[in-house]
Amino acid sequence: MSTKHCLALGATLFIAVAFGPVHAGDNPKRGAKVYGACAACHSLEPNLHLTGPSLDGLWGKKAASVANFPRYSGALKEQGFIWDEAPLNAWIADPQAFVPGTYMTFRGIDDEKVRGDLIAFLKIAMAPGGAKSAVAQGLINAEMARGQAPEPLATLGPDHQVTGIRHCQSTFFVATADGRQTPFWEMNLRLKIDSSSNGPKGGKPALVPGGMQGDRASIVFSDIEEIGRLVERKC
């Protein structure tokens, strides 16, 4: 038997032995309150991937099967199970025990009843168009359905639209469309990319403040090639 088949069989046996079926009395409304822990890394909106993939339409689908999400672990790719009640129960209880080597850092939920409520909610939310259904039923609001997705950057004002970045010694000088130039210690400025629909428009990177003292920020580009075109070394 191949290693891949052994892993898949092992996962199936783990589910069957360690976890029973989801109870009929599980409550999706209670589960919606627990879902906040999932929303830190997942969205319910189609193709809106965060740290983890969008959960839209995953119910009944094979694990690690979202075509436009490249961050699955090799361990999860080797599995052959389908996302439904029993695998989700095992996964939510202890992801690392269920799929050793997974990138999932969630510590798990010990309480079987809480897991059952959450799965009852996910059965609704992970169906195609589940975000709209969950919102329409009053289980969550639209903001929760998006998860912790960044605010859209394309509509930021001129004080956040970066027109130039100059590096001199240990300092980045960031020019914005309002005519200002702001200095940042090079260790306090992060250069990021958001190629999603939430990201900035092409050629118009966004300055996103951060830090309690206002001395930290990120510059978000729409494409990796823009970094080399816009940043210059000049004193």
Rank of each mutant, 00 (worst) to 15 (best):
A120G: 12
L88W: 15
V99P: 00
G116H: 13
D94Y: 01
M104H: 14
T102A: 04
W91R: 08
G108L: 09
L88G: 04
I124R: 10
V99H: 07
D110C: 00
D111E: 14
D111S: 01
R107F: 07
W91P: 00
A86E: 02
A93C: 10
M104K: 14
V99S: 06
F121C: 04
P87V: 07
A120K: 04
T105N: 11
W91I: 01
T105Y: 11
G101Y: 08
A86N: 12
E112Y: 00
R107C: 02
A90R: 06
T102C: 01
D94E: 11
I124H: 11
F98V: 08
P87C: 06
A93M: 02
D94K: 13
W91Y: 14
V114L: 13
V99W: 00
A93E: 00
L88Y: 15
L122A: 09
G116A: 02
A97I: 05
K113W: 11
G116S: 05
I119F: 10
D117M: 02
L122N: 08
I119Q: 11
M104A: 15
T105D: 08
I119D: 09
K113G: 14
D111M: 02
I119G: 10
E85A: 09
P87E: 02
L122G: 05
L88Q: 08
N89T: 08
L88E: 02
V114P: 02
M104D: 08
K113M: 12
P87H: 12
M104Y: 10
P100S: 13
